[in-house]
Design a protein around this nucleic acid. Structure first.
Lengths: 130, 130
DNA sequence: CTAGGTACTTACCAAAAGGTGCATACTTGT
DNA sequence: ACAAGTATGCACCTTTTGGTAAGTACCTAG
């Protein structure tokens, strides 16, 4: 098997630095809570910080803010500061964010449909780790 | 959009421990390379370890093997050992794995369609981090 | 006057995740 | 004989990620 061959697959010229479209997307939504944030914003529209905080349970302020800032800097989320006196801010999706959130729907559906199966998976994982 | 939810969000009784279907899925595919592995296996069918290794560029042996084992233990991937003398093993998707891979397709599409936009995003990210 | 709610910020830390390099046992190509 | 390829395993270490707890500035309800 003299594999002195030229670049096989995976060397698509169009995707500079990425292995494929999926890779592109994954890098954008990398972050423990980002997909969830996008998903919630898609569902409920403009949402205040505190609400989001309660919706995405178990996230800490530091990380939630941090990921919101990244999403904002990346143009997926829009932050609106009403500059009121008890602070009031809300977050919503940009058009790009909306399109990404739509692409997440099938994952959500999969999770719902396979919840039972996944629960078993996690039960087994827990056993292995003990 | 359909926010027919009662005052207290996030307290769905059906999803034990998960905040929503998306959360379920995300926990299964958590791992830097898992979605990519599923995607490649979906595309090329049974694939030998070495091929996979070259397809998912930049992954280390340790991590690739590790994630393959988890995917196998979770019932998403099937490992076939031909017990030949220079080792020969291949990996393929289980039905569950196939369904998950299908749910990943829109993400892949999104990445391809928004590649230009994402490239700009990363350029800006790089600037901010410097 | 104190407690609690708003939306954050910061310093410090622990855990998880992933990477490197070496080793295995055997075969094939040079 | 020797390098290289096959599919892993293991010890060790660094990086990344995320969490905790505190503080800020201001307001309202009790």
């Amino acid at each position: 098997m003299t594999d002195a061959s030229p670049p096989d697959h995976a060397r698509s010229p169009a995707l500079a630095g990425f292995t494929c479209g999926l890779d592109v997307t994954l890098r954008v939504i990398a972050g423990k809570w980002k997909p969830l944030i996008l998903y919630f914003l898609a569902q409920r529209g403009p949402t205040r910080y505190g609400e989001l905080r309660r919706a995405v349970r178990d996230v800490s302020d530091k990380v939630l803010i941090q990921q919101l800032k990244e999403l904002e800097a990346d143009g997926l989320v829009k932050r609106t500061d009403y500059k009121e006196v008890p602070p009031r801010v809300d977050y919503s999706l940009s058009p790009l964010g909306v399109s990404l959130a739509e692409a997440l729907v099938p994952l959500c559906t999969w999770g719902t449909q396979n919840l039972a199966e996944v629960s078993r998976i996690f039960a087994r994982r827990a056993k292995r780790e003990s």
